[in-house]
Design a protein around this nucleic acid. Structure first.
Length: 287
DNA sequence: CTTGTACCCTGACCGC
DNA sequence: TGCGGTCAGGGTACAA
């Protein structure tokens, strides 16, 4: 369930491993991870010879900025890991990354990238909900504009959160996970932020006053940065690039804790469905 | 425009 | 022990 802290953890790992490397060849083993039905041949041909100049993140998207050799245009490789996408980088002593794949239990390798220094980047995705999309810089910028602001940006203040969430009838929980309003938040951190802010996830955005919004802003940034410090939350599938687990699952206060007692007021944590997704909250102290 | 629902995908889990 | 049904939730397409 990678959200902002998990994707940012992956980004940091990939950036230190891959920045400056050049892609020698690409093998797509599960064609359906290419978004928009792009052909594996075309995709592989476009990436061959590209230098990875930086690895960035926007919301839950990983962005590999590529500088092609020759006269091709600069490109952006957009990656969404969604639920079960995982990366690993094998050393040149492990050609094709076979040993590493075995070691990490990568039994659904969907794509592999050979680098010109002999290393191999593996992308494994059990459910293949994640995927890749190769875009021109301009095309990426058009998509990027559809995303809401980054909640951890230094300039992101309480009033920016209020503006992002809007004043509609949408519940505060569904608004928080809507990437067009605010980027990077999913089911775990929306529930956790609302618990920190003592707000009922069913409240409509329009009912939040300035004080509520300040608490939510603080709760949201607090939980995202705390999780980032612990390399994210591993409940089932998420792993860092080195194969490690996040550690923030030990600090969750409501998510996946139905029936357990609230650490703040002792009331039993409830699970409800909102827009087909689970929300966890404490009916005792979230109002 | 806003809001809600179905879908994709596989493995873990549950009840029988 | 096996087996079918349900659920998990990213994004997106589409309907109301």
């Amino acid at each position: 369930m990678p959200e902002l802290p998990e994707v940012e953890t992956i980004r940091r790992d990939l950036a230190s491993a891959l920045e400056g490397a050049t892609i020698a060849s690409v093998r797509i083993r599960k064609p359906d991870i290419l978004m928009d039905g792009e052909s594996p041949r075309k995709f592989a041909a476009s990436l061959r010879g590209c230098r990875i100049c930086s690895v960035e993140r926007r919301g839950k998207n990983l962005l590999l900025h590529l500088t092609p050799q020759g006269r091709q245009l600069a490109a952006v490789l957009q990656v969404q890991v969604r639920m079960t996408g995982r990366f690993a980088v094998a050393p040149d002593s492990d050609p094709g990354g076979r040993q590493l794949a075995e070691q990490l239990g990568f039994s659904h390798v969907a794509a592999q990238f050979e680098l010109d220094d002999g290393r191999t980047v593996l992308y494994d995705d059990v459910r293949r909900l994640g995927g890749f999309r190769l875009l021109t810089m301009e095309a990426w910028q058009r998509r990027e504009r559809e995303l809401g602001p980054e909640p951890l940006d230094i300039g992101f203040k309480s009033r920016d959160l209020a503006r992002a969430l809007g004043h509609g009838r949408a519940s505060i929980k569904t608004a928080l996970v809507d990437q067009r309003r605010i980027a990077g938040i999913g089911n775990i951190y929306s529930s956790e932020a609302l618990h920190r802010a003592r707000l009922d996830p069913r409240r409509m955005c329009r009912t939040l006053d300035e004080t509520d919004m300040r608490r939510l802003h603080r709760g949201l940034r607090g939980v995202l940065s705390a999780s980032l410090r612990e390399s994210g939350t591993t409940l089932q599938d998420y792993r860092t690039v080195s194969g490690g687990s996040g550690k923030f699952q030990n600090r969750l206060r409501v998510y996946d804790r139905e029936g357990r007692s609230c650490s703040r007021c002792g009331e039993q944590i409830q699970r409800i469905l909102q827009a087909g997704r689970s929300s966890y909250f404490c009916p005792g102290c979230q109002i």
